[in-house]
Amino acid sequence: MSTNEISITVKLFAFFRENRFKQQEQTFPATITVREIIQRLGIDPEEVGVTMINSRHCTLDQTPVQGDQLAIFPVIGGG
């Protein structure tokens, strides 16, 4: 991994897991945004309900840093 890259843990939930994974360490360019990661995974950003970095809500324009945990949820609810 070069200094221009970051390694983060990506977690997927509900039907985003289908044909993908639950949790994976992935390497990305250091400038990548959450939106770009979602697109690389083949997920339509319109289907995304909630994203969190290290258990805090984040925007799609945010840039994760080395070692972050990124959680990506579809639009879900319950109660």
Binding site: A14, F15, V50, M52, F73, P74, I76, G78
Partner: peptide, 20 residues
């Protein structure tokens, strides 16, 4: 879309997001 997810996973879809 929330209705659709509720039909698939039930209200228990919340365990992982509330944990996260």
């Amino acid at each position: 879309p929330i209705s659709q997810a509720l039909g698939t996973y039930g209200t228990n879809v919340l365990v992982n997001i509330i944990n996260e």
